[in-house]
């Protein structure tokens, strides 16, 4: 069984985003970029399913040439091969979903495991859109995945608790944080990943319209909070709480 894992290159989650002075976006020059954390979890989950019937893991990334690094990371973790759909243009979730749909048509995977959201634009859309385009079942925010024959049972994190759904294959899963703890690639595996196959494509190869629908007019910093006062002890804190009417 083949699994497709889309991985996005984003600003590393440890880096504090800085809004550019001209209001056009967040400054990405000379900052550390990494695989979207939820996508690492997706790659890890695909690898763990290898004892459960998964035979091939294909990692896909859509974006600039440097996304190759992200794909090499996926290969070093344990993916078998990779596809880079190279474009310098910003591709929105709808465009990404359309490209992924075309790749699904060509590759015929039984599962696509995506991150629940990319931590740059925080859209949380692509997996659901791909499922909609495919007419396939979707299990978003997965915290547990059990593969059995031609179906997959997924426990999902929902407001207030968890929910379990059973989907027929092919199906779409998006990962939440508690699904697993992604592995670090070992040095030998990083070396080995260099010789794993990485196909280079362009959006034109798939004949898909990915023209953006949204225009970003400006990007600003949120209203700043400033540090307030420090109180010396609980007596002072109690007094403040009483003054706010929170405590009697």
């Amino acid at each position: 069984m083949k699994v497709l894992v889309p991985v996005k290159r984003v600003l590393d989650y440890n880096v504090k985003p800085r809004v550019k002075a001209d209001g056009t976006g967040v400054d990405l020059a000379n900052v550390k970029m990494s695989m979207n954390p939820f996508d690492e979890i997706a790659v890890e989950e695909a690898i763990r399913l290898k004892d459960k019937g998964v035979t091939e893991i294909v990692a896909v990334s859509i974006g600039e040439a440097k996304c190759q690094e992200t794909l090499r990371t996926a290969l070093a973790m344990g993916a078998d091969r990779a596809i880079l759909v190279q474009t310098e243009d910003k591709v929105e979730p709808l465009g990404v979903a359309k490209l992924l749909k075309a790749i699904v048509d060509a590759e015929q995977p039984q599962l696509v495991i995506l991150g629940k959201q990319a931590i740059d634009d925080d859209n949380n859309q692509t997996g659901q859109m791909l499922a909609g385009l495919m007419g396939a079942g979707q299990a978003t925010f997965a915290s547990k995945v059990e593969l059995a024959g031609d179906s997959v049972t997924v426990t999902r994190e929902v407001d207030g608790g968890s929910e379990t759904e059973k989907l027929s294959l092919p199906a779409i899963i998006t990962t939440d944080l508690r699904l697993n703890e992604p592995r670090y690639a070992s040095l030998p595996n990083i070396m080995k990943a260099k010789s794993k196959p990485l196909d280079q494509k362009t959006p034109a190869d798939y004949g898909v319209d990915i023209a953006p629908r949204l225009t970003t007019l400006k990007v600003v910093e949120p209203p700043k909070r400033t540090a307030g006062v420090k109180v010396a002890d609980t007596d002072e804190l109690v007094a403040k709480l009483k003054a706010m009417g929170v405590a009697k």
Binding site: P17, V19, R213, L214, T216, L217, V219, P222
Partner: peptide, 16 residues
């Protein structure tokens, strides 16, 4: 809408 975990606020216009 917020992006980057609310570290930036984007104004977006749609053509849809």
């Amino acid at each position: 809408r917020p992006i980057y975990a609310g570290n930036a606020i984007a104004t977006v216009q749609t053509s849809d």
